[in-house]
Design a protein around this nucleic acid. Sequence first.
DNA 1: CTCCAGGGATGAT
DNA 2: ATCATCCATGGA
Length: 314
Amino acid sequence: MQANRLAEIFAPDFDLEKTLNSGQVFHWEKYQAGFAGTIASLSILVEQSGEILKIRCGQRLGVAKNLSTIVAHYFALDHPLAKICASFPNDAAMDGARAFCCGLRLIRQPVWECLATFICSSMKQVAHIRQISLNLRCRFGRARPLFTTHIYDFPSARRLAQETEVALRQCGLGYRAKNLLATARLVADGDAKLEAWRCLPDEELRSHLCALPGVGPKVANCAMLFAYERITAFPIDVWIERVLRQSYFQGKKRPTATALARFAGEYFGPHGGYAQQYLFHHARSTNRRGKKANLGETNRRRSLPQDDMRAGAQ
DNA sequence: CTCCAGGGATGAT
DNA sequence: ATCATCCATGGA
């Protein structure tokens, strides 16, 4: 059945490259004219030409599943982007970010995959988060066929829970390995019911997330924004903190973390998380040292590797 | 080489 | 409640 392995989706007001390279998701890689990655455990090739997304899936889908529906949901093509952008405040920083990030959407990521990746993100550059994600997938994920090659899905909590801290450290996790393993075991044992938490109100969800090892306010907000569809969640990392201080606290003495969080929650409106992502991507793309605002993450990998993992001792 | 990265946990004020 | 320090690792 080739029929449900191919799809073309009408996707106006959408920029695939900006969406995938804005630091909300870390595993999509440039491949031919598009990007290769997984949606949950489905291997996907997606290419944008104008307002059309061309989708190829490397696997057979169950009869009940529809490729177009899955992809459209993942990329949040139903979000009313024009209204969302219009709801942002009008100021110099926001206007610049809004103009720069046209078509950038906040996608709907699988909860565990998103949470686990952001546990690995603390004090790491985006390029290295990508590498950690790739290492975890190649070592512990399941291989998914994709034409002449294959890619790996993100390992389940149960799968990671049976590993050792040393094994996780070999993926480049450093001190984060202990936290990832501990949280994986809580999820695998049913002590942290990530899916059941979907129905909780924001504050309750946040406090449950923050109780997990390696999860603080920032990582919790990322999971809420990128996986739980809590569009007001406003992660504050070093980049966003700089933007807030320079653009909204000029001349004042250094605002505390709680002052920044309170301001962000009040000022940016009902889609504050979107505003945050636009500010983040704009700042990171224009402010990066070395190259000028070039093509985001330039993938210098030419194939989809699975064997750049040396099994070095300790 | 140095500096810094989508922070969190812990212990001292 | 706020602040200081430590935590591994690798890109730039």
